[in-house]
Design a binder for these strands. Structure first.
Lengths: 195, 195
DNA sequence: CAAATGTCAGTCAGTACTGACAGTCAAACC
DNA sequence: GGTTTGACTGTCAGTACTGACTGACATTTG
């Protein structure tokens, strides 16, 4: 990423996010962060006061968090495969956008209060949406009627697992090997839930 | 856990495992580990030489690693639901037994060389076994024939996700909420893969 | 007695964070 | 146009503390 045109504040936030997500909060020094941002350590402290506050600022600034509910009510077409695809895609999009923040919350749970909750808010929302979707689909007779909570949970867990797996192996963005997984996983669920 | 009867060496290893899995390698001091073990810091260094070596020793001592392949060839009964249950159970048993080591490898990836690979060895093995199982089942006409790799991968990812989810929420052992998930997830796959 | 452990003082390197001072640069003012 | 001002940044030396690790000597325990 070319950060040279950003303000110094943003450069620091991004550098912090990159480094801390890789090596953990205690694994990175303020000196390193400043160097990575092409600035002096002094500037870091002048802008943020402390290392903690720097990380919190990074979190606030770069934690993407739009509302989803309305979005879904418009987009669902009440066809199982199409809608599952929408859910999968939305899930991975959210997770990938917050990928680094997510990694930090995994590694440094103890360090930041309430971090985990915020990071998991959207996935939880998605789970709710999917559960309700399954219930409605059953009512419409378009799906077998049995344990929608667990079915939704299973679907989400599958995607959660795949995302985490992705985090480890190829640390770069392109969810290239994710795509065939998404396709197949949807086929499986569609076949299992069809009435 | 009552560690009072163990040798001092084991007490240190367990204390290290407990603390580091919660707060990360850099988040725990040697002093804390020693205190938690009810011993002096000096003893820690006398026994292990360094903090790194302590962790490595803990890993070697408490990373359960029996072979699985033979085990499976004996236990599989070639009935989809029963065998999927066996795979699920084995998976969660392995993961839970290595739970703390696994958490450390998540948090402190960078710290330990080759940690991740060792931790993931058994899950990978399981994936292979399951893939081959699916292939054979297709050949026998007991399962639809289509993309066994991805189907196995999806199944494993689902369980991986559930395991990770478990790690976060209730930090204690009893995989109580895991059980209904396992049941339902197997139903789903059995229904999806039935010919 | 011998092996294991504790105590305590101390070394050494790192690390978050500060203060004093100086340079740059663009806008504002004369 | 030249000067001043103010916001921002850098340098450097330094403080205060932490944390891994050591050595000398005393104490416990089987």
């Amino acid at each position: 990423m070319d950060t040279s045109k950003l303000g110094s504040s943003d450069r620091l936030l991004l550098a912090a996010l990159n480094l801390i997500s890789e090596r953990g909060y205690n694994g990175v020094t303020t000196m390193e962060i400043a160097k990575a941002a092409g600035l002096s350590e002094k500037t870091l402290f002048r802008q943020f006061g402390s290392k903690q506050k720097l990380l919190e600022a990074a979190f606030d600034r770069y934690h993407y968090a739009e509302e989803m509910k309305k979005l879904f009510n418009e987009k669902l077409v009440w066809k199982l495969e199409a809608d599952l695809l929408l859910v999968s895609r939305t899930y991975h999009e959210i997770m990938n956008r917050n990928r680094k923040i997510f990694q930090i919350s995994l590694k440094d749970e103890g360090q930041l209060p309430g971090f985990r909750e915020r990071t998991h808010k959207h996935p939880h929302q998605l789970l709710e949406i999917l559960t309700n979707y399954f219930i409605t689909m059953s009512d419409k007779g378009k799906m077998i009627a049995a344990n929608p909570e667990m079915q939704a949970f299973s679907f989400m867990m599958m995607n959660y697992g795949a995302f985490q797996n992705d985090l480890d192996s190829h640390k770069n963005y392109p969810s290239i090997s994710l795509e065939p997984f998404i396709q197949e996983s949807i086929k499986i669920f569609a076949r299992a839930l069809r009435p």
